[in-house]
């Protein structure tokens, strides 16, 4: 594992190693000195071409807890607004000696291209509608912490699958980890390629809910929509939103997840989002541990990958 570009690149052993490492590193968050010297002298660049709150702060906190030097780069206020290409920006980072680059970009595949241009490890922090592997890892971590296992769990991913990089990464990773994933969305919000994904598909949330151990709600990504994918927000919410009534029909042990940012009242009601069976805040906390684990495994060693 030299880069983390796709959740599908991880084998079961690698994914489990990341989750196990994250569990040990989570202890650091509870100590008075929330810092490890492990990545001292290493430089991590956060290259964010797209807006992000959670992911950027989470990567920054993770790198800092491991004592790496962090350089934050956002497209606004940089030479990108003067027309610099991704490749030239990459070469600049290369010349500055970045050991790791965390990239968020609106174009699918940007992280893969970047990995060809720089020597350091590249971590995909979301590329367009393609992938967001660290989100999938933190979701898997959260599920494992709450449910005790992943193997054999039934996970429903509900909402705007078509524009969601989180959905694709989660399907790939959860499948590797042995969970059964069902995607639930209106036909217009499913990607064309969905039949090649290792999961099943349903259009009916009410049918899937009682059979799910984990329900992951996704935001409707209006900013990526260039056409009308459903008649009205109200109609979408009635058919695919998780409200109190639907929540009551879920199994008692089932949990509700959301990668954020969430639109209360649209895909999830406030009452569900704030319930003790919702893991939304935990997911954010776990994100730091999981990203620490990823940075540790990619950057701490001799660079020849992970050992056992």
């Amino acid at each position: 594992m030299r880069h983390l570009l796709s959740a599908g690149d991880l084998t079961l052993d690698e994914a489990t190693l990341v989750l196990d490492t994250a569990k040990e590193l989570a202890q650091v968050g509870g100590r008075s000195v929330k810092k490890l010297p492990t990545l001292r002298g290493r430089t991590v660049v956060n290259l964010f071409y797209e807006d992000s709150t959670r992911t950027r702060i989470s990567f920054e906190a993770a790198a800092k807890r491991m004592s790496a030097d962090v350089i934050n780069f956002s497209a606004k206020g940089s030479s990108v607004s003067k027309g610099e290409s991704l490749k030239d920006t990459a070469l600049t980072l290369q010349a500055m000696g970045a050991d790791g680059v965390v990239i968020r970009h609106s174009a699918s595949g940007a992280a893969h291209r970047l990995a060809e241009w720089v020597d350091g490890a590249v971590v995909n922090a979301g590329d367009g509608t393609h992938e967001h592997p660290t989100q999938a890892l933190l979701d898997a971590y959260t599920i494992r912490e709450r449910m005790g296992r992943l193997d054999g769990l039934r996970v429903a991913v509900v909402g705007d699958i078509r524009h969601s990089r989180v959905a694709r990464s989660n399907v790939l990773l959860l499948n590797t980890l042995g969970a059964e994933v069902t995607l639930v969305a209106p036909p217009t919000l499913l990607p064309v390629s969905v039949r090649t994904w290792p999961c099943s598909v349903s259009y009916d949330l009410d049918e899937v809910l009682p059979k799910s151990d984990v329900v992951m709600m996704l935001r409707v990504q209006a900013e990526r929509m260039n056409a009308a994918f459903f008649p009205t927000a109200r109609e979408y919410s009635r058919r695919y939103g998780l409200d109190g009534d639907r929540f009551a029909r879920m199994p008692d042990h089932a949990i509700v997840m959301h990668p954020g940012p969430m639109i209360r009242g649209m895909e999830i009601s406030a009452e569900v989002a704030d319930s003790p069976r919702s893991t939304i805040v935990e997911q954010v906390a776990n994100g730091v541990s999981v990203r620490m684990a990823v940075l540790y495994l990619l950057l701490s060693g001799s660079g020849s990958g992970t050992g056992n």
Binding site: L17, D20, T21, E24, L25, Q27, L36, P37, T38, Y296, L297, L298, S300, G301, S302, S304, G305, T306, G307, N308
Partner: peptide, 21 residues
């Protein structure tokens, strides 16, 4: 006490599995 994260030879080998403190 797990000392993996404090070793001075981390860069000489592939990343090591972390133990529990």
């Amino acid at each position: 006490l797990d000392i993996t994260m404090y070793r001075d030879d981390l860069r000489l080998a592939p990343a090591r599995a972390v133990g529990r403190t």
